[in-house]
């Protein structure tokens, strides 16, 4: 029964993708892209990936849309119609689709328990997590402990991308643009209803973010999702009260400290393991009981991830929003 629903959602996904490419209004395209992300999150949930679905819904549908809209406000809203030369790409793309579909019949069927992907390390993770780390959410265990190096790398990619955006956008514009700051910075201050409801919701969004952060060992969640959710809450505050109020609440220096401090915290946990006589990012030595040591390490590095992601997304948002 669920497969019918999945096929319906996947078909909608393809239709939305076609609509994104066909429309010439970029604002419409960005909004359709948010719908695309939400459909993708639903599909992830059907495919048993609750953590990934939560991340896609918070990041793909929430933060990405806001950043795209910020960029649209600085560039153009309408795309020029293409004049010529669309048949060659179309032919190449169609042929490639047919080749991939032909090749897909050599793939394992969806949900095949004997597929090669399920034979290598995954059974070991599923079997030994209860013994070595003793937390229910295996995704968090693999993310933070077994593949800690990988996650450390990803956190530093987020860090580097944030620094890159700040480098590119903190240079003042060459031509002085027409000043519309007084109109722009007031946000939605004169709209009573969104403001009242927004003020009501922002604390609960933070609360939910913290729940996702600290419940990540037991249910879907963790630092990546929590950072994105808390960043969304602050972006909502910025949209309601104006850019200046949000920067007043969390100044840029604090944001930079969050971006650097979170990544540092992650690295320091690894170094602490080395000082205590283990390997880099080996949490077992953090406590006399290796299992509790592992849990301590996971909580610490998840906190580092959450702080970095939240700080980086907010810095990127402010960099785009301040530009005009």
């Amino acid at each position: 029964m669920i497969i019918v629903f999945a096929v319906f959602l996947l078909t909608l996904l393809v239709l939305t993708a076609v609509a994104v490419v066909r429309t010439e209004n970029l604002f419409v395209a960005v909004m359709l892209m948010a719908i695309f992300s939400l459909l993708m999150a639903t599909n992830f949930f059907i495919l048993d990936a609750a953590d990934v679905a939560l991340t896609e819904a918070a990041v793909g549908a929430g933060v990405t849309t806001v950043i795209f809209l910020g960029a649209l406000a600085l560039t153009a809203e309408q795309e020029k119609p293409i004049v010529s030369g669309r048949w060659l790409p179309l032919a190449v793309v169609s042929v490639t689709v047919l080749v991939i579909i032909y090749a897909s019949f050599d793939q394992p069927r969806l949900g095949d328990p004997g597929a090669p992907a399920h034979q290598h390390v995954a059974p070991w993770y599923l079997e030994k997590t209860a013994e070595f780390i003793d937390i229910p959410n295996i995704v968090t265990a693999v993310l933070a402990s077994y593949r800690g190096y990988d996650t450390l790398g990803e956190v530093f990619v987020v860090f580097a991308a944030c620094i890159g955006v700040l480098f590119l956008l903190s240079v003042p514009p060459v031509k002085p643009q027409k000043s519309k700051s007084s109109d722009n910075s007031s946000g939605l201050r004169h709209h009573l209803i969104p403001q009242v409801v927004g003020r009501l919701l922002v604390p609960f969004i933070f609360l939910f973010g913290l729940y996702v952060q600290f419940h990540g060992e037991y249910g879907p969640g963790g630092g990546f999702q929590a950072g994105a959710i808390i960043a969304t809450g602050i972006i909502l505050y910025a949209l309601l009260e104006g850019e200046a109020a949000a920067l007043n609440a969390i100044p840029k220096s604090v944001l930079m400290a969050m971006v650097c401090g979170g990544a540092m915290l992650y690295g320091m946990v690894g170094v602490a393991g080395m000082i205590l006589g283990g390997n880099f990012l080996d949490y077992s030595v953090l406590h006399s009981d290796p299992v509790i040591g592992q849990q301590m390490g996971i909580i610490l590095i998840e906190a580092g991830v959450g702080i970095t992601v939240c700080g980086a997304l907010l810095s990127i948002f402010h960099a785009f929003a301040e530009r005009d």
Binding site: H191, I193, P194, V197, G198, L201
Partner: peptide, 16 residues
């Protein structure tokens, strides 16, 4: 409760 708060607000913001 979340849906009942945000839905009408979004509609209001859209109409406005």
């Amino acid at each position: 409760i979340f849906l009942l708060l945000t839905g009408p607000t979004a509609t209001y913001a859209l109409a406005n």
